[in-house]
Amino acid sequence: MDLSLSTRTVGDRTVVEVGGEIDVYTAPKLREQLVELVNDGSYHLVVDMEGVDFLDSTGLGVLVGGLKRVRAHEGSLRLVCNQERILKIFRITGLTKVFPIHTSVEDAVAATD
């Protein structure tokens, strides 16, 4: 399965809905998408990972890169994920401390720092 990406705007947030597998082959597409959004002035991103079947360290690297970019503009990058197997990867790498992880898009969109 390939990677699917779609974006929509909710208030001042941009929601990126990701589906499929994020690995060494597909991660560059996600990176391009995040870079493009930041270049276009979207600095408050919500990455919805509910449709993600697989995530590896390459994908984590892209998300960290995205976070770095939005932070340069005082923005935010929030994740939406309820899948235990995906959450586990954030946990073992200590990235749960880096990313705010929400249980729903509504929750992530409503959140403030």
Partner: peptide, 20 residues
């Protein structure tokens, strides 16, 4: 540089393996 980071990702991959 931030764009490539081959060594950094390499280490993260190993960290994931060792954690799992």
């Amino acid at each position: 540089e931030e764009e490539s980071e081959p060594e950094g990702e390499d280490e993260m991959g190993l960290a994931v393996i060792k954690g799992l």
